[in-house]
Design a protein around this nucleic acid. Sequence first.
DNA 1: GACAGCCATCCTACTAGAAGGTAGGCATGG
DNA 2: CCATGCCTACCTTCTAGTAGGATGGCTGTC
Lengths: 195, 195
Amino acid sequence: MGNLATTADEILRCARSLIIAGGYNGFSYADISEVVGIRKASIHHHFPSKVDLVRTLLQRYRTEAQAGIAELERHHPAPADQLRAYTSYWAACIGDPTSAFCVCALLATQIPVLPPEIVAEVQAHFRSLSAWLTSVLERGASEGSLAFAGTARSEAEGFMAAVHGAMLSARAYGDPQTFRGITEPLIERLVAGRP
Amino acid sequence: MGNLATTADEILRCARSLIIAGGYNGFSYADISEVVGIRKASIHHHFPSKVDLVRTLLQRYRTEAQAGIAELERHHPAPADQLRAYTSYWAACIGDPTSAFCVCALLATQIPVLPPEIVAEVQAHFRSLSAWLTSVLERGASEGSLAFAGTARSEAEGFMAAVHGAMLSARAYGDPQTFRGITEPLIERLVAGRP
DNA sequence: GACAGCCATCCTACTAGAAGGTAGGCATGG
DNA sequence: CCATGCCTACCTTCTAGTAGGATGGCTGTC
């Protein structure tokens, strides 16, 4: 009963895929109105300003990301499997143009020209993703299932950077396979040092 | 005698730093005209269209990059030192807002909305950078000064992705030190496996 | 059950400013 | 004398955002 996806949801979903394609300045209310089949002014009814729209979008994205990670942790108890599930999720996204990049990673490239409210959300995502990866690596190290040279924190930052760089390379080469080619050795190296 | 930097050079230099800040759609002819102290129409005299401007900018960037790498190879014969010199160059850039990101890496994020001529230049940069890194790693492996698990090619792709991801993280955290924190272990790991 | 009020949604019509780009004129210097 | 460089003035299209009206479904109240 009732439309499962409200208009506001549709707008957010559409805006997300447009940002993934071209960033904050790469889309307009007119673009959204065409796709959603609504007038520009109606979008302003749901989201008074562009900043409101993107802030809401990012808050929702972060909530979904955290829920996804919680789900992932339930399905995969082992730290190595959690890392594999994380990269596999993105490997599956890379092929689909509407979700082929992390919205926060893409927006992070444009931080100098972004409104401060947006920057705050992007930074929060980086911090929480880094914190989660750190906790996974810490547990893997204490269990003995993962091994690495430096601290869990610095290894987590390196892992996150490599994943973001892999998304970028996949886009640059126009080849989804590139992502797996970069991320798989990344995990196997962490597992290789196990007892 | 004569102004060392011509107006066209000034325009290109200015456009580059504006792209580094906000990407292809993040700057306008008006922005450049303000900084350079010239009218919008005069920029069109030097570069008829925005595509002309950015294509020229990228061709010059690629030439400079190749010259920089040639210079780097002269100063540092050892493969490990070449990798260190490469990341140190970028570590020095990260602090300066006008050069804190690789222009091609930044534009690569927006490939879906970029004119095809620009995409071609960006892809060419990724390919030549990857080819150079591969050759450095190959030489390091055959000399025995560097060690890694997979092929030189796949290791080079991973290295490049990590460097790009490190630029992104440094920007996201607003902390230049982040870049060194990610890239230094990257090289030491390659060196650690030496005989 | 009829009626009134209210609010959410969406619309048409509009604004001011910024976008990339053009036409044509005026210097200066080889 | 003619190419180079820069100018004023203008164009079209797009930008985010606003004003105000139509619809229509939910309330409460008599």
